[in-house]
Amino acid sequence: MNSFLDKNTFEQNDEYAAKLIANTKDETMYNRILDEVQHCKSFTFAVAFIESGILNSLKTVLKDLNVQGRILTSTYLYFNKPQMFRELLKLPNVEIRVYEQNHGKFHAKGYLFQHEGYQSALVGSSNFTAGALKVNKEWNLLFTSHNNGKLTEDIASEIEEQWKGASKLSPEWIDEYEKKYKIQNKPAIKVVSQSVDEDNSNYSI
């Protein structure tokens, strides 16, 4: 615990101990994230892939809370659907930015929560999808730090750097993204080669 916390204050306090969250029957990333959101002052998610369905739970939790949030996501591999981006705009008190592919391959999966006097973070393999947060065998490290803790400070600094270079999410941005998304996800035309005579002449359809 000395690696993450002020040893004079938190050394013997198990509540702040680092732990692995691996989607077991006792604890999932989904439950842990929603619990952190309900008890934090603000939060920042930096996550490459998001699914629309899982946003409904976050929206419900945020509706009755005075919590400010930020979500940094991406256009990497055109995984994120246009409708998902539209759902993101409906989250109350949450600012959204998108790290676009022309800036690099954004593949982060980190969740940072600001509490009174300390920060907690979840960093690992889970995107913000139902499978990754509830059932997949994911590895995510939960750790807590004083506000001047080096590790959470480094994470926050990395997020800030990428946040500044990201695009603000807007209906107009989504409309443009949808055009690119449809091109990238266009069904491939299957090419079938058929030998038609002994001279090995081939025709493709």
Rank of each mutant, 00 (worst) to 15 (best):
T144G: 01
E11F: 14
D154C: 10
E27L: 15
K179T: 15
S204N: 12
L77V: 07
T44C: 13
S145F: 07
Y111K: 00
V61S: 05
Q101M: 08
Y99K: 00
V191H: 07
N148S: 14
K186V: 12
E198C: 05
K168P: 13
S167A: 14
Y177Q: 04
N140S: 04
K182W: 06
R97S: 04
P171A: 04
I33H: 02
A18R: 01
N200G: 12
S42M: 04
T24L: 05
L122W: 03
Q68I: 10
I50Y: 05
Q162H: 13
K81W: 01
K150C: 03
T44Y: 07
I183G: 01
L91W: 01
S201E: 15
A166V: 03
G131I: 08
A48S: 14
F79Y: 15
Q101C: 02
N127H: 03
C40S: 09
K137S: 15
Y181R: 00
K25R: 06
V37W: 00
Y181H: 04
G124M: 01
A132V: 00
S57Y: 03
E176I: 15
K90A: 13
A156T: 09
R70T: 03
N13L: 12
L112V: 15
E27P: 13
E11M: 11
L91N: 01
A156Y: 08
E100K: 05
N80A: 06
P92E: 03
E15M: 11
A46T: 08
D154N: 13
K105V: 09
R86H: 14
Q12R: 14
K7D: 10
G104T: 08
D35C: 13
G124Q: 03
K168W: 11
K90H: 10
K190C: 12
E172R: 04
V196D: 12
S145R: 08
S167N: 09
S126H: 02
G124E: 02
T9Y: 11
T44V: 15
A108C: 07
S52N: 13
A17W: 13
K179C: 06
M84P: 02
F85S: 07
A22E: 12
N127G: 05
Y16Q: 00
Y30E: 06
K41N: 15
A156E: 06
E138D: 11
I159Y: 10
N200K: 09
V37M: 01
G104V: 09
L91M: 05
Y181P: 02
G131F: 10
H115C: 10
L91G: 02
Q68A: 11
L65G: 08
F45D: 12
R32G: 02
T144S: 10
T44S: 14
A166M: 04
Y177T: 07
D6T: 10
S195F: 04
K180H: 10
M1C: 09
